[in-house]
């Protein structure tokens, strides 16, 4: 299998992951599409260096999260844009309204966290173990545990406030 087709396969397998990350780190559709493309581009650029040094998911989350936080907010608009709107928007059509409401609450909770917590929360929701979260974030596993406990406390206090 050629490098290109291998890469395409990996992206296709993980398109949902990239979508979820772009949803958390952007506020509108246009911004989300831009970030989606930027992540795929950065993944492609670093694909040669990846060479199986770490798990695919570790590499992918690391590049995607780093791209999301380093992207200048004002750096957007204009430019050629691949129409991935339909890819992304369509999923809302499948949601029942109740589920959509619950999903909105989840996103609202995540948006209330700081940048570090946001990344940790995403990885936690993705079902990652503390060791892998530590690998992606550069924190020690024990520190990941401590911070996740704090996030849980924060979520509880958000509920109390409401």
């Amino acid at each position: 299998m050629s490098k290109e087709s291998e890469f395409t396969r990996i992206i296709k397998e993980n398109e949902g992951v990239i979508f979820k990350i772009t949803t958390i780190y952007t506020n509108d559709q246009e911004d989300q599409n831009d970030l989606y493309q930027e992540i795929v581009y950065q993944l492609w650029k670093s694909y040669d260096n990846f060479r199986g040094d770490s798990k695919i998911s570790t590499w992918m989350y690391r590049v995607a999260l780093n791209t999301a936080i380093t992207r200048l907010k004002k750096e957007k608009r204009r430019g050629k844009r691949i129409e991935i709107d339909k890819v992304i928007i369509r999923q809302t059509e499948y949601y029942d309204t109740e589920f959509e409401e619950r999903l909105k609450i989840v996103y609202a909770h995540i948006q209330g966290l700081n940048e570090l917590e946001k990344g940790l929360m995403l990885l936690l929701l993705e079902g990652k173990k503390y060791e892998e979260i530590a690998d992606i974030t550069g924190l020690s596993p024990s520190n990941v545990g401590t911070r996740i406990s704090r996030i849980k406390q924060k979520l509880k206090s958000q509920i109390v406030k409401k």
Binding site: E4, S5, F7, T8, I11, K12, E15, G16, F19, K20, D34, Y36, Q37, E38, V40, Y41, W44, E75, K76, R77, R78, G79, K80, R81, I82, I84, K86, V87, R90, Q91, Y94, Y95, L103, E126
Partner: peptide, 26 residues
């Protein structure tokens, strides 16, 4: 949501290839 996303894969090979090209970036 992850399950629903898994069932809705929409990216094509062409779209991915285009995203990897400098000229399509912003």
């Amino acid at each position: 949501m992850s399950t629903q996303l898994e069932q809705q894969k929409k990216l094509t090979d062409k779209m991915i290839t285009m995203m990897t090209q400098e000229k399509y970036r912003n």
